[in-house]
Simulated assay, not measured.
Amino acid sequence: MHAHIPQDTAVGIPATVVWDLYGGAKLGRLVDKLLADVIGKVEIVEGDGGVGTIIKLTFPPGGQMTGDMVEIIAKVDDENRVRENEVIEGGFKDLGFDLFRFRLEIIEKDSESCIIRSSMEYEIDDELEDVVSRYVSIRPLKIIAETAGKHENHYHVKLFNQ
């Protein structure tokens, strides 16, 4: 089974500002500072936020997913404002997914707003359909996009220019 699940979130922040957050390591810091209790604790294991960076996400206690999940940043396209992370260990891999990819794209609407297009793509054996219905949700990516849209201007200097 192969699927692609998209989610668009409009935000009142310029695309260049949002890409500055989404295009590198700052997104992990935003999640770690503001969403650790919902999404999990984010740690950069290796790299600087570019292609090849290894990221470890430790899921929060009491959530549906448990333990750790390791991702690699597989693509960063500054010109088109696209980033792709692939799960390489734990999390969805432990549940039987052959491929689990997160794609983040920042689409400029006008000079003061943009759309954060978050999506998930996965491949899994058809016999594991119950795993998909139980664990796959675009909700975490939507929460991250909404948080970025609400907090990016306020927290930008405080969080990222330390």
Score class of each variant (00 low, 15 high):
153 N>M: 10
77 D>N: 13
115 I>Q: 01
20 D>H: 11
16 T>W: 00
138 I>F: 02
9 T>V: 15
26 K>E: 06
119 S>P: 00
126 D>C: 00
139 R>I: 09
87 V>L: 06
112 E>H: 09
125 D>G: 05
97 F>I: 04
14 P>Q: 05
59 F>L: 08
22 Y>A: 13
105 E>C: 04
56 K>C: 14
114 C>S: 08
5 I>E: 08
159 L>W: 05
108 E>M: 01
26 K>Y: 07
53 T>A: 13
119 S>L: 06
87 V>N: 14
136 V>W: 08
8 D>W: 01
5 I>M: 10
26 K>V: 08
38 V>F: 05
139 R>G: 07
131 V>Y: 05
43 E>H: 13
106 I>P: 01
40 G>H: 13
24 G>E: 09
88 I>P: 12
101 R>D: 02
126 D>K: 03
79 E>T: 15
78 D>T: 11
52 G>I: 12
70 V>Q: 11
110 D>A: 07
57 L>R: 08
75 K>G: 00
61 P>H: 06
34 L>A: 09
49 G>F: 10
14 P>R: 04
6 P>R: 02
74 A>K: 14
105 E>V: 05
61 P>W: 00
58 T>N: 09
5 I>A: 08
140 P>C: 00
56 K>H: 12
11 V>E: 08
40 G>C: 10
8 D>N: 15
154 H>I: 14
151 H>W: 10
